[in-house]
Design a protein around this nucleic acid. Structure first.
Length: 424
DNA sequence: TCTGGGGTCCTAGGACCC
DNA sequence: TCTGGGGTCCTAGGACCC
């Protein structure tokens, strides 16, 4: 048996934990540039506010119903997430951290427990330790546990727990689930399935396997097998090493000058370098992309992307920044209103192995120098202690490209200065 | 006026090898 | 007239997830 524990309306719930006055108000959380709605409390959902709606399209509703609106505060959500996960890890030994607000638990060794009762215990404990409401779905495969969790969320009388442990329970759960609500079946595949009159999870489970293999490929075949009770997706107890790392942002205002774009690109490359060092990895490739708004029909459009392979695998801020900026020199075209840019580092390998193979060309460095490593350690140490950006490259400048974040809540759990009242 | 960010996996097809 | 068989690697693009 697998359990899927999923936090309810996670970002909205995080904001609520620290402000009881919000408990009776609808709450929404916005995307990075305060552009779209990416999390909604139940009350906000009831107002008809859809996931991903641009804020400017629902401004009236937000105002009329006094909806509490927040910029996204990933420091807060990340910290709340680790509290939830630590609580779960104490309740079940084998846990897979699936996303910021979800975890799978391996329940196979809980045979002598009343699973429904244990699920309720999980729910109570997480609520008590963190203030975050969660739902628990349990079933013989991960995909069925997802189905169960969704039912627990949707039907209030389940009281946040749904256990699928009999053929009968599984059958009726599958019949009550549309194909588009199955984990692994997205928009395109749903369209294909509906066209074949395969409408529910029960229909998909019963569809001819060769047809599924041919049209939904190997991933769809696994989904079908999992719906039929054959577990194909094992627990991943250790997080696999990252294959790529990306830092990208939409700009608060359009950027037209090379200078400002240069600053943004340096900042994104610098953030990638920090993430690389946190991952203890080095990168061999770097990609830069820059572009105009895809929504603005009045302005000329441009989208440029270019990748280079680095001379040697690196995690050095200056090396990566120089590489990104050299790509910008190639990609930049004057006369456009740029709205977005990003840096991706890829071909990652463990930093511990870097430089262990000799360069073919003896006079070229094959890895970051000791000096570079020392400098990066010091930079990271200072920024850890005094806050992000306390020390940085001069080229990483703030500018009008910075995203809007007008409604940011305090970092209640990670920053003293945000919660200490200054009384003079 | 105003539209997110960060990932993974799979497949098809081309280029190339012997 | 008749023109093989069996592979690998790489990349772009599409699909999915949260």
């Amino acid at each position: 048996m697998f359990a899927l524990v999923d936090c309810n309306n996670f970002y909205a719930s995080c904001e609520r934990v620290f402000d009881p006055a919000l408990r009776t108000r609808p709450v929404v959380v916005l995307s990075n540039n305060d552009g779209c709605i990416i999390a909604r409390s139940e009350e906000a959902k009831a107002l008809g506010i859809k996931m991903g709606t641009p804020v400017f399209k629902c401004r009236d509703v937000l105002r009329r119903y006094k909806v509490a609106v927040f910029s996204s505060n990933y420091q807060l959500y990340g910290d709340m997430s680790s509290r939830v996960m630590m609580t779960l890890a104490a309740l079940a030994p084998d846990i897979e951290l699936y996303s910021i607000d979800e975890a799978f638990l391996d329940m196979s060794s809980f045979g002598r427990f009343d699973l429904a009762e244990y699920a309720r215990l999980i729910r109570r404990t997480v609520r008590q330790h963190t203030g975050i409401p969660v739902c628990v779905g349990m079933a013989p495969t991960k995909t069925l546990a997802k189905v169960a969790n969704r039912l627990a969320k949707k039907n209030p009388h389940y009281l946040g727990v749904c256990l699928l442990n009999s053929d009968e329970a599984i059958r009726s759960a599958l019949a009550a689930t549309k194909v588009e609500d199955i984990w692994g079946i997205g928009r395109q595949l749903s369209k294909l399935l509906y066209a074949r009159n395969i409408n529910t999870a029960a229909d998909l489970a019963a569809a001819p396997a060769p047809w599924v293999r041919k049209h939904l490929h190997i991933t769809g075949a696994k989904v079908q097998a999992e719906l039929n009770g054959t577990s194909c997706l094992p627990m991943e107890l250790v997080r696999p090493a990252k294959q790529s790392i990306c830092t990208s942002r939409s700009f608060g205002k359009s950027v037209t000058t090379w200078d400002e774009l240069h600053q943004a690109v340096a900042t994104f490359a610098g953030k990638c370098a920090v993430k690389l060092r946190k991952e203890q990895a080095v990168a061999s490739m770097l990609t830069l992309f820059i572009g105009t708004s895809p929504f603005d029909d009045q302005q000329a459009r441009y989208w440029g992307t270019k990748t280079i392979s680095l001379q040697y695998p690196t995690q050095d801020t200056m090396t990566l920044t120089r590489a990104a900026q050299s790509l910008l020199d190639v990609l930049f075209r004057g006369g456009y209103a740029y709205k977005k840019a990003g840096v991706i580092v890829s071909e990652l390998s463990p930093a511990a192995l870097a430089g262990k193979t000799l360069s073919l060309f003896a006079d070229e460095a094959a890895a970051d120098s000791e000096q570079s490593k020392k400098l990066m350690r010091v930079m990271d140490g200072i920024n850890e202690r005094y806050g992000r950006g306390a020390v940085r490259l001069a080229s990483e400048n703030a500018g009008s490209w910075q995203p809007n974040q007008d409604r940011l809540s305090p970092c209640y759990t990670t920053r003293w200065s945000d919660i200490i009242e200054v009384t003079g």
